[in-house]
Design a protein around this nucleic acid. Structure first.
Lengths: 130, 130
DNA sequence: CCTGATTCCTACTAAATAAGTCGGGTTAGG
DNA sequence: CCTAACCCGACTTATTTAGTAGGAATCAGG
């Protein structure tokens, strides 16, 4: 799979929000709970907010919260927001042509798992049969 | 999955060797058949040889060939040779802990497919049920 | 034993990506 | 108006990627 540190952080931050009681969670809290460098986290949360995945509130008692119920946000969605859509522009010739099908299979497996797990699953520790 | 261009080239080169009739295949041929930059290919083939995956012969009528029967070389093996062993050093805390299991599942799926497909499968276009 | 085809090998480079950091601006509550 | 928080673009440093360069070593055939 190979995901960037940024993406791992985003997923962990999202998990933290999903597990928190309702109401704004300040970045500082997420940062310490998940051991994510504070300024970097700001940056990531900003990206999640711009993508519409979370909402935010400034000022005292401000913070971040999920824009939708945790069981309606999949890991795949978070990953896409951070990594962007994967673009494959490989070409296959002759003997290597069957590789295309192998990659397709791999991608399907991946997608199936990542769209099958939601933030709610992470929050209550009950993973679905994958 | 995300593999480097180098790894894709290695796989395609290996597929080409698997599909060729017995005997040395010159790099030049692989390069044109699979549209791989010549000098870069040299470099990659060298790495495959040092790993013991292929053999080579210099001079006229020289070239490269598989060190073992094509049905005994898996895609996983080629990938490991080029990419090295993947090292994950992520740590999980609290709400994000279940992620570990998700990544494990993903890795298992991947491994199952990549160790299940051999160069022989590519060569004769008969992929196993994945 | 010379010639040309072919592999072998180290080193180099330009561009992209990754992983943060920095400095300050903006907003809201008390 | 003060303080806690988010907002935002730009910057930096290191690593990886995708090759390229230049030539040395080897081997078959004539």
């Amino acid at each position: 799979m190979r995901l960037s540190a940024r993406t791992h952080y985003a997923l962990r931050a999202a998990a933290e929000l999903a597990a928190a009681p309702p109401g704004p969670v300040p970045a500082e809290r997420i940062s310490t709970a998940q051991r994510i460098p504070r300024r970097f986290l700001d940056n990531i949360l900003l990206q999640l907010r711009r993508a519409g995945l979370i909402h935010s509130q400034r000022g005292p008692d401000g913070g971040y919260w999920l824009a939708r119920p945790a069981d309606q946000i999949t890991l795949a969605e978070v990953i896409i927001v951070i990594e962007g859509v994967p673009q494959d522009n490989e070409a296959f010739f002759g003997a290597s042509e069957p590789l295309e099908k192998v990659w397709a299979t791999l991608r399907e497996n991946e997608t199936r798992v990542l769209t099958g797990v939601t933030l709610a699953h992470l929050a209550d520790g009950s993973l679905p049969t994958l």
